[in-house]
């Protein structure tokens, strides 16, 4: 039964800015291991949607449910309890617990998602320390391992991200967001502003981590190539509404909506 329940379930959700809806009537389900791309241009409502899903903005209509895991029992591992939460009912404490244990958020601008004056190791170690890790050696070893996984040279562990390139900063951000083993990761244009080769490398890394860790990901992007490379399913948004959704290759190869056809045909061909 648990396999049948989606990890994240969005039902006709929308967020209002005063009189105007930033996004409206959005519905989809997401299962572990799936990457969902939300594609649209500026003003499409994709960032509003991401904000609403991640609880930074309220869901003014509709409902968003999340299947949380808490481990009970003295040994921890075997007694896993799943509970379906209506996110609107959560207290701030519960939301913050989700952010520490089950959710990650990769910002477009790494400086928003990192402490720029703290070392790379400290940035990656912080979620562990927030979750009660109290052994310096273990924290450092785990941070080192994760920096290695995102291909940051080990000798940079004590350097602050302000000395890193944009691509490296994003990789530190990814490590920081994965170190505590989340199940759902939100990404807001994680590769925009980066050089093309850097983008490719970063997307490749994200893709392999998603497969390896069985993560569910919601990634907002304006770049269809990013959606194609990394996502299984795509939502296309325009003016706050979802105009098309489905398998990514179907949406991009056989677009049905006029707007999607326009987007696809607008991709610059080299």
């Amino acid at each position: 039964m648990i396999d049948e329940t989606p990890l994240l379930s969005v039902d006709a959700a929308g967020h209002r800015y005063g009189d105007r809806f930033g996004c409206r009537d959005v519905s989809f389900d997401l299962w572990p291991g799936e990457v969902l791309a939300v594609v649209g241009e500026s003003g499409s409502g994709k960032s509003t949607l991401l904000g609403m899903l991640s609880q930074r903005l309220s869901a003014d209509e509709g409902r968003i449910s999340y299947l949380t895991t808490s481990e009970n029992g003295p040994e921890g591992a075997q007694d896993t309890v799943h509970a379906l939460l209506d996110l609107a009912t959560l207290s701030e404490r519960e939301v913050r617990r989700l952010w520490r244990t089950e959710w990650g958020f990769v910002h477009q601008n790494a400086a928003d998602g990192l402490r720029m004056h703290v070392s790379a190791g400290g940035n990656v170690g912080e979620p562990l320390m927030a979750n009660g890790w109290r052994h310096y050696g273990s924290i450092r070893a785990e941070a080192e391992a994760w920096l290695g996984r995102v291909e940051i040279p080990a000798e940079r562990i004590d350097d602050s991200p302000s000395t890193f390139s944009g691509g490296m900063r994003q990789r530190v951000q990814i490590a920081r967001n994965l170190v505590f083993g989340p199940r759902l990761v939100f990404m807001d244009e994680p590769t925009s502003g980066l050089d093309v080769s850097v983008q490719a490398r970063l997307l490749d890394l994200i893709r392999s981590l998603v497969t390896e860790l069985g993560l569910a990901v919601v990634i907002v992007t304006h770049d269809l190539a990013v959606a194609r490379l990394i996502s299984h399913r795509t939502l296309v948004m325009k003016d706050g509404a979802v105009v098309e959704s489905g398998l990514t290759d179907r949406v991009l190869d056989d677009p049905q909506a006029a707007y999607t056809q326009l987007l696809v045909s607008s991709i610059l061909q080299g």
Binding site: G246, L247, D249, R250, D253, D254, Q256
Partner: peptide, 9 residues
């Protein structure tokens, strides 16, 4: 082919 594979609707 693509309809069977799901790339086309």
């Amino acid at each position: 082919m693509k309809m069977i594979y799901g790339s086309y609707g």
